[in-house]
């Protein structure tokens, strides 16, 4: 096993800035779920001068649209979705204090610039490890945008949720470093 860093939410700026690209983490506490449709609504609310349904200061958003829970389950399968679809909205939410994002895949330079500016972290969860990840989710509670179904804004209570820091607050990108290390081209 690579060394694991345990973190709890809320995550303050100092804690976020101490995380480095390549760190394996386990997250415990409350995190929020939102995909592109919920992001669009949140940013539109801000543009109208309204408050967000939740205070995102020092919080983490997990990009996930879970499958439905069977009777007796907290949540269905719950792996990360592709983060790039949220790139258009993420900098605005970081301006509101958003400290972390969990997803999978590449981010735009605008997102990385905002992460450096505000001191935020981008974590990758293992795409397609949806059944394993679901076991770390202890509570699922829809907070807003219920009509979006799997895409609603929800609050998750997690214990030892596994993730990897892929882009840190200095803008170091572990996708790029990892690929270059193993490239034989």
């Amino acid at each position: 096993m690579t060394d694991v860093i345990r973190i709890t939410t809320p995550l303050d700026e100092a804690a976020a800035r101490s995380l480095k690209a390549g760190d394996s983490v386990r997250i415990t506490g409350t995190i929020f779920t939102a995909r592109d449709a919920a992001h669009k609504r949140m940013v539109e609310a801000l543009e109208r001068g309204e408050n967000l349904p939740v205070d995102l200061h020092d919080q983490i958003i997990y990009y996930v649209g879970p499958s439905p829970a069977k009777p007796g389950q907290v949540i269905g399968a719950a792996g990360p979705t592709t983060s790039g679809r949220m790139d258009r909205y993420a900098p605005r939410l970081m301006e509101e204090g958003l400290r972390g994002m969990i997803g999978k895949g590449l981010r735009s330079s605008e997102v990385v610039d905002a992460m450096k500016k505000y001191g935020a972290v981008y974590f990758a969860a293992i795409g397609g490890a949806a059944a394993v990840i679901a076991r770390t989710i202890k509570k699922y509670e829809v907070l807003a945008y219920d009509d979006l179904g799997a895409e609603a804004l929800a609050k998750l209570t997690v214990e030892d949720f596994p993730a990897i820091v892929v882009i840190d607050s200095q803008g170091r990108d572990f996708y790029d470093e990892g690929r270059k290390k193993f490239s034989r081209e």
């Binding site: 879970p66 399968a77 719950a78 949806a130 059944a131 394993v132 799997a150």
Partner: peptide, 18 residues
């Protein structure tokens, strides 16, 4: 983790991916 995930999905009739 991916092979464990496939086993959990199989045993619990849970989707491999959401």
């Amino acid at each position: 983790t991916l092979s464990e995930n496939a086993c959990i999905a199989r045993d619990e009739h849970m989707p491999i991916c959401q």
